[in-house]
Design a binder for these strands. Sequence first.
DNA 1: AATTTACGTCAGCCATATTGACTTATTTTG
DNA 2: CAAAATAAGTCAATATGGCTGACGTAAATT
Lengths: 178, 178
Amino acid sequence: MADVNFNATKTWANAALSEGTGNGPQDPEQLHYELIELLFFAYRDFVSDPDAILAKYNFGRAHHRVLHFVSRNPGIRVTELLDILKITKQSLGRVLKQLVDDGFIEQRTGLQDRRQRLLYPTQKGETLSHQLSVPQSLRLEKAMSELPEGGREIARQFLYRIINEPERPHVARLAGKK
Amino acid sequence: MADVNFNATKTWANAALSEGTGNGPQDPEQLHYELIELLFFAYRDFVSDPDAILAKYNFGRAHHRVLHFVSRNPGIRVTELLDILKITKQSLGRVLKQLVDDGFIEQRTGLQDRRQRLLYPTQKGETLSHQLSVPQSLRLEKAMSELPEGGREIARQFLYRIINEPERPHVARLAGKK
DNA sequence: AATTTACGTCAGCCATATTGACTTATTTTG
DNA sequence: CAAAATAAGTCAATATGGCTGACGTAAATT
């Protein structure tokens, strides 16, 4: 059943390739379709892990991202958080307010610059953030543990080099990686 | 340069870790925070490529995903598409209708089973799908080209093993990979 | 004193996802 | 053959997480 469709697909795809080739800037056969799809599925499953946990707190993925980066960068300014997440102030506003109201994040006025509201995780926030990281970390650990010698470093470099070049230094600083 | 930042971050992270530790099921220091974040940033930039192109057609990422998998699996059934995308029939409905209305996807009644509406890309659909794949493929190619010998295969295995184990065979069939 | 910056907020809009219920064809099965 | 199951579509209501534009306030900078 699935196999029938698959075989039919294969044939068709090949036919499609032969009829429409030689004209694009890229030969279709050279495109990394497989990698594109693996990354899609890998990421889909990777982010699905925390969802069950988040649901118990009536939080979504947006909360997860905010809590994560605040926990990893205690004292972060709102502006930098916006820059990391690449969302608007208004979008951040809602989820941040919930996290503060529910006692996962704390805002403290900056000491040197009193306009700033520096963000810190509370103990509760640290705990939840950690909880959310565990399944993702385990998933990555399992994936890497099956790789040959040096595979971990290669996987890391691979991901790092997918990131837009101009942003790599910033990410490196944040994530603590060359 | 990157090293300077890297060291600063390390110190910071360690300070944060020492205050709240020792209680979780996993020692925080062993969690792959760096990888978690690299995957986050890598995916964010990876999916950002096609957005500009899609905007010209008034399409979003949902359209991209549907068009991609239909183009890669011509003749796919609606049910299997739902299974791949892990969304509901209703969610698929809207974007699929737009893609059909705008002439990017064609529906044909199944020959053996006339209940089925098999999905095929039109020539226009193939072209757009291809266009969307090019920047993503180039990004991956650049990332892999800088890896040491055998790096490509390792990167692929890494992504493959992030996927939920029970689904790997299905993904492998789809993506054309072990 | 004027300007800029950091942050917050109100109001409204859009895209994408959800659940639940129901319909229509068509195929499968007892 | 009649009943049940399946494939797909559709209506309605709802939630989430983005967006823009406009405006306000406090604090720092010039």
